[in-house]
């Protein structure tokens, strides 16, 4: 029922932990496309997490007969939205300052 939000919690913790690790280990050297390695890694993980959300959502929408299942789908969407929004700072904000 709450799988969407559980996945968000996992995604959020992963991004936060990776960010902390990246900044403290000094992966700030520039990678490709003029972005730092830390930022590239975060971007890649964020996008794959969004993909995981979409897969979960496709699995959730297969059944929508009971109200519990419909609530589960809504929570799947909320999880997806939350991961997109809480990860958005990766794109627009500088990494380790």
């Amino acid at each position: 029922m709450v799988s969407g939000l559980v996945l968000w919690a996992v995604a959020f913790s992963t991004l936060y932990a990776l960010h902390g690790l990246g900044c403290s280990s000094g992966w700030t050297g520039s990678g490709t496309f003029g972005l730092s390695w830390a930022k590239l890694l975060l971007l890649a993980v964020w996008i794959s997490l969004i993909g995981t959300h979409c897969i979960l959502l496709r699995w959730l929408v297969r059944r929508k007969d009971t109200q519990m299942e419909r609530i589960g789908i809504a929570i799947g969407w909320i999880g997806l939205g939350a991961t997109v929004v809480t990860g958005a700072p990766i794109v627009v904000v500088s990494s380790c300052v």
Binding site: W8, L15, P89, V93
Partner: peptide, 26 residues
Amino acid sequence: FLSFGLWVHHMFTTGIPHMALGFFSA
């Protein structure tokens, strides 16, 4: 669930990098 992703907004002035603050702000 979401309320477990807010705790750092009590720590916005502790010198944590802006991107991490951004996660919690969002």
